[in-house]
Computed example of a mutant assay.
Amino acid sequence: MTEGSKRRLKMWIRLLGVTRRAEGELREYLRLTHDTTLPRFDVMAALYRRRDGLTMGELSRMLLVSNGNATVVVDRLEKDGLARRIPSETDRRAVSVVLTPEGLAAFEAQAAGHEVEVTRLFARLSDDDVDAITDILKRAEKT
């Protein structure tokens, strides 16, 4: 193993550790403050970004989860009155999912708190640090 590859491996382990710690704290925040889960938050965020709705396939691809996982989350959101399914007018097999007005309001409250939590988690980083890390990660995505 070369010195460069060892350094990259250490960097990967550190990146993974930071990601896992932040994700764990965000999961706990959402559970305690909003009585929700990170997967539910992620589905609601995707639906919030696409107000006209997403098919289950689009939602699964967007979130990098199986159709089954997405379906379980959407089922619960629908049961709780936060999302609804809309059958396609052109394809009987296709169904779009949208947030209800209650879902929109709930997500906006969750998202505001989520933003505060992310800011708290990375408060020790300066704006220049955040910009540099963002630039580095964008370059790493292209490899």
Rank of each mutant, 00 (worst) to 15 (best):
residue 83 A to K: 03
residue 115 E to A: 15
residue 51 R to G: 01
residue 115 E to S: 14
residue 3 E to A: 12
residue 123 A to V: 11
residue 42 D to T: 11
residue 90 T to L: 04
residue 41 F to I: 02
residue 137 L to Y: 13
residue 119 T to P: 04
residue 98 V to W: 00
residue 132 A to E: 15
residue 7 R to I: 11
residue 102 E to R: 15
residue 27 R to P: 06
residue 39 P to Y: 03
residue 117 E to L: 11
residue 80 D to T: 14
residue 57 G to P: 06
residue 9 L to P: 02
residue 143 T to V: 14
residue 4 G to P: 11
residue 38 L to S: 13
residue 1 M to G: 15
residue 75 D to K: 10
residue 44 M to P: 02
residue 8 R to M: 01
residue 64 L to K: 08
residue 81 G to I: 15
residue 9 L to Y: 01
residue 27 R to H: 13
residue 130 V to Q: 13
residue 28 E to D: 14
residue 40 R to D: 05
residue 121 L to N: 15
residue 78 E to Q: 07
residue 65 V to L: 02
residue 101 P to N: 09
residue 130 V to S: 15
residue 14 R to D: 08
residue 37 T to R: 06
residue 130 V to T: 15
residue 119 T to I: 08
residue 95 V to G: 01
residue 127 D to H: 10
residue 98 V to D: 00
residue 27 R to V: 09
residue 67 N to R: 06
residue 101 P to H: 06
residue 54 L to N: 01
residue 44 M to E: 01
residue 30 L to Q: 08
residue 30 L to V: 15
residue 11 M to V: 04
residue 33 T to N: 07
residue 28 E to R: 13
residue 100 T to C: 03
residue 130 V to K: 15
residue 119 T to H: 09
residue 22 A to Q: 09
residue 5 S to P: 03
residue 134 T to I: 05
residue 61 R to K: 09
residue 12 W to G: 04
residue 27 R to L: 07
residue 84 R to E: 15
residue 12 W to I: 06
residue 126 S to F: 09
residue 118 V to I: 08
residue 33 T to F: 00
residue 23 E to V: 08
residue 64 L to Y: 01
residue 8 R to K: 01
residue 95 V to F: 07
residue 104 L to Q: 09
residue 85 R to W: 00
residue 67 N to C: 05
residue 118 V to S: 04
residue 7 R to N: 14
residue 89 E to F: 10
residue 136 I to H: 11
residue 82 L to N: 04
residue 7 R to W: 09
residue 100 T to W: 00
residue 138 K to H: 13
residue 126 S to Q: 02
residue 18 V to T: 13
residue 75 D to P: 04
residue 89 E to D: 10
residue 9 L to I: 02
residue 74 V to L: 10
residue 8 R to C: 02
residue 49 R to E: 10
residue 69 N to T: 11
residue 25 E to W: 05
residue 39 P to I: 02
residue 14 R to V: 05
residue 103 G to D: 02
residue 85 R to M: 00
residue 47 L to R: 00
residue 13 I to T: 10
residue 68 G to N: 00
residue 95 V to Q: 07
residue 4 G to T: 13
residue 140 A to H: 12
residue 139 R to F: 05
residue 63 L to V: 05
residue 122 F to C: 12
residue 41 F to D: 05
residue 92 R to F: 07
residue 127 D to Y: 04
residue 44 M to V: 08
residue 40 R to H: 06
residue 37 T to I: 07
residue 28 E to G: 07
residue 19 T to L: 08
residue 91 D to R: 02
residue 91 D to Q: 00
residue 75 D to W: 01
residue 11 M to G: 03
residue 99 L to N: 06
residue 58 E to I: 11
residue 83 A to N: 05
residue 121 L to E: 14
residue 112 A to V: 05
residue 126 S to K: 08
residue 24 G to V: 06
